[in-house]
């Protein structure tokens, strides 16, 4: 099953590298959003808390603009049935989850790098903690958005439904992620961040387990 899932992941990666649909859309979104933020700020000084919130807003909306592609692309190309005939639902879910994880992790690294480059006031005090929070945040976002993308893929209004359904599901992750990132930026003691890390870890376990259990029903008519 793991080999099948890796094959689905490789297929999605090869397809994305060939068509560059999600990658180009995501990169353009991030660059344009950060440019708009810079113009809007125009020399204003923001607190680290405000900047942390802004970083997560960019990460959330960037994820919303590209992560649904994993399933929507299969539906739009008409290849959903082909994939159903090729692999078990578990292998499909795991392969799509791996692809979304790679996409969101690469995207978040790009966003953070650009953010550090253009936002002078955004200084990270504890880089180890900061990247740990980014890793957990990426895992949580990928896990939640993969099952939501599978649910909305057949809807007519998928573009609207994806962020609308994702927001309440991602809210606990966003709150814990923002809080933990703020602690990493402000150089507070490690033990202050522990409850948020626990929440992020628990969120990932719960959402991934529920997704595995639900996916069979979502994938077949």
């Amino acid at each position: 099953m793991i080999r099948q899932a890796l094959a689905v992941f490789r297929k999605d990666l090869a397809s994305e590298l060939r068509t560059r649909y999600a990658i180009n859309a995501l990169l353009m979104f991030v660059v344009v959003t950060l440019a708009v933020i810079m113009f809007a700020l125009a020399g204003e000084t923001l607190t680290p808390t405000a900047l942390t919130g802004m970083l997560w807003v960019v990460m959330f909306f960037a994820a919303m603009s590209g992560l649904s592609r994993s399933f929507v692309a299969e539906e739009e190309r008409g290849t959903t049935m082909t994939l159903q005939l090729l692999a078990s639902p578990t292998a499909v879910y795991l392969g799509k989850l791996l692809f979304n994880l790679l996409l969101v992790a690469a995207l978040n690294v790009f966003i953070v790098a650009l953010f550090l480059l253009v936002m002078d006031q955004f200084v990270v005090s504890q880089f180890g903690l900061f990247w740990l929070v980014m890793l957990l945040g990426s895992l949580g976002i990928a896990s939640a958005t993969t099952i939501i993308a599978a649910i909305i893929a057949r809807a007519n209004t998928k573009g609207t439904l994806f962020p609308v359904l994702s927001f309440p599901v991602l809210l606990p992750l966003l709150m814990a992620g923002i809080n933990a990132t703020k602690i990493a930026v402000e150089d507070v003691r490690w033990d202050a961040v522990w409850p948020d890390l626990q929440l992020l870890g628990s969120y990932i376990v719960v959402i991934t387990t529920v997704s595995f259990l639900l996916f069979d029903f979502v994938w077949k008519d």
């Binding site: 297929k11 397809s15 068509t19 190309r77 290849t79 049935m81 082909t82």
Partner: peptide, 9 residues
């Protein structure tokens, strides 16, 4: 006839 394969490959 309605089975679509991966046409980018």
């Amino acid at each position: 006839p309605y089975l679509t394969l991966y046409e980018e490959f």
